[in-house]
């Protein structure tokens, strides 16, 4: 019944709100997560991502609103581990229990055979280490063990909270390929991260929240916008006119005598300039600065709501606009 629900493996979140003693962690949040796609769930630390995911998984009771998976709330699922797999934190292990026993404890609870446990240890590449006690595991091993736990019941839907935390570059690449394979099988995958850069190569859709509110939801392509070409010439206005004749829209660049043409065809821009008798001092492809866009999106709302004292305590300080955003956020501790 649960596996063949009419909405398949879609996650639907509607009007989800959670308030803790007057502090609003998540406020009227609504979005859908589609099957067969990887959705990035983004926001700065303290934005309410983890609280949202915990409400989806029935661990935290919403103040109002609801979240359903394939049309059912988590608590109503007949076989939860075979419907939704979740990896929330890489530290959810008893240090004195082996990784394999950790999985067997969960497998027992969900009536999953031990053979499946060993199969997953192979799949996630930790069969030998899994017999050692989990307290000695590296962060990367914990992430893999968490992923193995999420996949135990071969679920249609995967919910992963900051799965790249603590993974080395090789691990991140492995995870990317792994998630892509699962998504190609038609699974619904929701991955949270506080860094757009970490997931931008992986995700198809993005949902961005800040201060518990939705800021943006759409495809990654929408967020990127149209790619263009940045051209530097002596008379930007004249070149804009020449490009218009060639059916290419353009807009003035940030610096004087520069132009952003809405085409990825650099050769076309060069040819037009040559025909118009205008010099080309520089010509390069230009894509949206996603990281900059992400920070402007999440920071704008933050500033508007900065009056909440409780929110100030909860939300780590945003990097100032002139700082390098990547360097600043790398120092933040994950929520």
């Amino acid at each position: 019944m649960t596996a063949t629900a009419p909405t398949g493996g879609r996650i639907e979140i509607a009007g989800l709100t959670k308030r803790f003693r007057g502090f609003s962690a998540v406020e009227d949040l609504s979005f859908d997560v589609e099957p067969g796609r990887i959705t990035g769930f983004l926001g700065p630390n303290g934005a309410g991502k983890t609280t949202t995911l915990r409400m989806v998984l029935g661990l935290v009771r919403p103040t109002s609103g609801y979240a359903t998976i394939g049309g059912y709330r988590y608590g109503e699922l007949e076989r939860p581990l075979s419907t939704v797999g979740a990896a929330l934190e890489a530290t959810n292990f008893h240090p004195g229990r082996s990784g394999r026993d950790h999985l067997r404890v969960l497998a027992d609870a969900a009536s999953i055979p031990t053979a499946r446990v060993d199969e997953l240890l192979e799949l996630t590449g930790i069969p030998a280490a899994a017999r050692k006690r989990a307290g000695a595991y590296s962060m990367g091993m914990r992430q893999r063990l968490g992923l193995a736990a999420a996949l135990l019941g071969d679920p249609q839907v995967l919910v992963l909270d900051e799965p790249t935390n603590g993974l080395d570059p090789e691990g991140i690449r492995w995870l990317r390929g792994f998630l892509r394979r699962l998504s190609d099988e038609g699974k619904t995958i929701l991955v949270s991260s506080h860094l757009l850069r970490e997931v931008e190569a992986t995700v198809d859709d993005v949902v961005i929240i800040a201060n518990g509110r939705l800021v943006q939801a759409g495809t990654m392509a929408d967020l990127r916008g149209t790619a263009g070409a940045l051209v530097r010439t002596s008379d930007a206005e004249a070149l804009a006119g020449a490009l218009r004749v060639a059916d290419v829209t353009s807009s003035p660049g940030e610096e004087p005598d520069t132009l952003v043409a809405e085409t990825t065809d650099l050769r076309l821009v060069g040819d037009v300039a040559l025909r118009a008798g205008l010099p080309v001092y520089g010509l390069e492809p230009r894509s949206t600065d996603l990281e900059q866009l992400y920070f402007s999106l999440t920071e704008g709302t933050n500033r508007n709501e900065g009056a909440q004292s409780a929110a100030d305590q909860q939300v780590p300080h945003q990097p100032a606009p002139d700082q390098d955003p990547g360097a600043a956020s790398a120092e933040e501790v994950s929520s």
Partner: peptide, 18 residues
């Protein structure tokens, strides 16, 4: 107590939401 201390209670309640 160790379920709360080591946060394994999360996995326990995910496997058995009741």
């Amino acid at each position: 107590g160790s379920e709360y201390r080591h946060k394994t209670i999360t996995g326990t309640f995910l496997a058995i939401p009741r």
